[in-house]
Design a protein around this nucleic acid. Structure first.
Lengths: 353, 353
DNA sequence: CACTTTGTTGGAACCGGTTTCAGTCCGGAT
DNA sequence: ATCCGGACTGAAACCGGTTCCAACAAAGTG
């Protein structure tokens, strides 16, 4: 008579069929002790018969726990962000937690995301990537006792996984200086309000390297634009058309460095003979195009962040310690010694292939 | 005296403070009609005063709706899968739904994911990428009335977004044949049980192209391996060391094609002079290394799948129609005419090693 | 003025679990 | 035989919303 189940079985159905109380079914489900083996068997039998599975929503409500970890990040379109997410996925995969992704491309969406999250009823923990939540949100998160870990961002009151962007910027720039460059351009990132300002730190590293190298900072060499390939390309074009154009450019991200390479190509400027280019990140393509860059462990940053969060969720206390991941200069084919040029006399025909 | 809230405000608190019933608060929250303006204002005032925000879990339980869309996919590590996810994120971002990601690298995790999902209490809809859920799960999903859309997979009872893999395989192979190649190798994918078997279709396309081109199929040219760069590389090495080695290789994915390129490089075989290579997908790196490949709209497939699912969630019926996305051969630098080699004199008539 | 309507409202019953708490049943000790 | 503690068990009170339904007031109708 009841061909179609008309909805999944509830715990009450199991209890009825097994001839026990709901509490007992719950105890069996959660492996609590003190259930007589015979009773347990009856319950399991009923569960099997009804193909019963508890509703996780109801469970969440009752336990005040969701078994979900949320990742909040701006620009999921960014390849380096994706790499971090992959690390996070890797870390979370072997845990009982599931993953929710919030791509907050605008401040509006950011607010919405945190409104959902800061009560702690949508996710048990947060991984915040490459951005900083506004302070009121942080307060609420703390009040709701939702552990957070920052990845590629830093805050006095939160644990984080970062790299030393100042050192990285300096590393890249020093490499160019050591090769003999003195006219070194920089293409940075204009951070939206809500994003973490790592670009600024790389700029500082750039400035510091120049200073230590005894090279005067030229403001017309320092430009900012959104972190996109084609914006970087047009900025690079301007830079390269300067009367006294730089012989090297340090771009604050690989994506932007690729834009610089395109600009050079379309202007007929040869790399690295006439222009050296350094990027930052070491995304996959960097290896394929032979881009010299500062490698930061993107995947690892996500994995590590995930681990820290899991640890916090497991109840182990988590201090606001900031974990520093190593940077490494990867020298490939886009950097070389500058040619002595006044009016681009002769391109050295005996350049290293 | 109550400095710390000791937990977020509940609807009851709002009701009390506003001096109305809970039902009325709920009406105000959900914009129901028939609430006197004065009452509404009192409630809003109380909400503001308490900084109240409804618990989404409680809401979910009551409404039997989660406002979550889940993406289930094997191998989040795969760049083409990531590209699809980005398309999905793009489509979902502009909707009221949030996104959950289930990376099911093993059958075990797959089962777990569907156990969570098939009751429909964790997500309102599913996007299943590059895999096929087992039939019992599909039944449960249908019973629970959870709409599903397949991306890069096909099933008689479900709507899907796909490409014509047979045509794609044929397209790639025909390109090689038209260039004059007759000894064409194929490196395919060994699909785990639970994954959708597109590799098989590409193999069929390969076979069909050979047939139509009047070229005899040589089984020693057809190999399978997991979809990874280094496995493909070692397979390619074997292929290239064959006494009568192929002059061209069609790899069922760009990742594998990159492995082939590496194998060629380490064997000192020049591409495309001595070996032509065609991939499949057109991931970002393909453009940078100049790989000839069959482009499939990865991002678009995710976006389109997301759209279809949103439509279904909006109540519009959704038939099991399969949406076909276009393929396009992108000729770059890894394919060319074969050179006449002397060591092998008319291969097909003599004995195959 | 009595008698529907119609517009607002709050009590209470859900949604489907977990957990407290009080009770039952039992063997062992006095 | 009586008492006591511990092992099991189920009714009921949560978790925090939504919504049915009955109640009641104000307004419209005869």
């Amino acid at each position: 008579m009841e061909a179609l189940p008309a909805g999944a079985a509830r715990i009450a159905d199991v209890a009825t069929l097994a001839g026990v109380g709901e509490a007992t079914v719950s105890r069996v489900l959660n492996g609590h002790a003190n259930v007589r083996p015979a009773t347990r068997e009856k319950v399991l039998e009923a569960i099997r018969a009804l193909n019963y599975r508890p509703s996780s929503v109801a469970r969440n409500l009752s336990l005040r726990r969701t078994m979900v970890v949320a990742v909040v990040l701006p620009w999921f379109t960014n390849p380096s962000a994706v790499e971090r997410v992959r690390g996070i996925v890797g870390a979370i995969a072997s845990s009982p937690y599931d993953l929710m992704v919030f791509d907050v491309e605008s401040e509006d969406r950011q607010r919405r995301a945190f409104e959902l999250l800061d009560r702690g009823d949508r996710a048990d923990g947060l991984l915040i990537v490459s951005m900083l939540p506004p302070d009121p949100e942080l307060k609420r998160l703390r009040a709701a006792n939702v552990p957070c870990v920052l990845v590629d961002a830093q805050h006095a009151s939160l644990p984080s996984v970062v790299v030393d962007d100042v050192a990285g910027g300096e590393m890249a720039t020093r490499h160019l200086i050591e090769l003999g460059h003195t006219r070194i351009g920089f293409i940075g990132d204009t951070p939206p309000e809500f994003r973490f300002d790592w670009s600024r730190d790389r700029t500082r590293g750039y400035e510091r390297a120049l200073e230590r190298g005894g090279i005067e900072l030229r403001h017309e060499y320092v430009r900012e634009g959104t972190r996109s390939l084609h914006v970087a390309r047009s900025i690079a074009s301007e830079l390269l058309r300067l009367p006294d154009a730089p012989t090297a450019i340090f771009a604050a991200s690989d994506t932007q460095a690729l834009g610089v390479l395109e600009a050079a190509r379309s202007l007929g400027i040869r790399v690295p003979e006439e222009l050296s280019v350094v990027g930052f990140d070491d995304v996959e393509v960097a290896g394929y195009v032979g881009l010299t860059t500062v490698r930061q462990p993107l995947f690892e940053s996500g994995r590590r962040g995930g681990e820290l969060l899991l640890r916090a969720l497991a109840g182990r206390p988590l201090d606001a310690h900031s974990e520093l991941l190593p940077l490494e200069l990867v020298v490939r084919g886009t950097t070389g010694r500058p040619v002595r040029q006044q009016s681009s006399v002769k391109a050295s025909s005996s350049s290293p292939a």
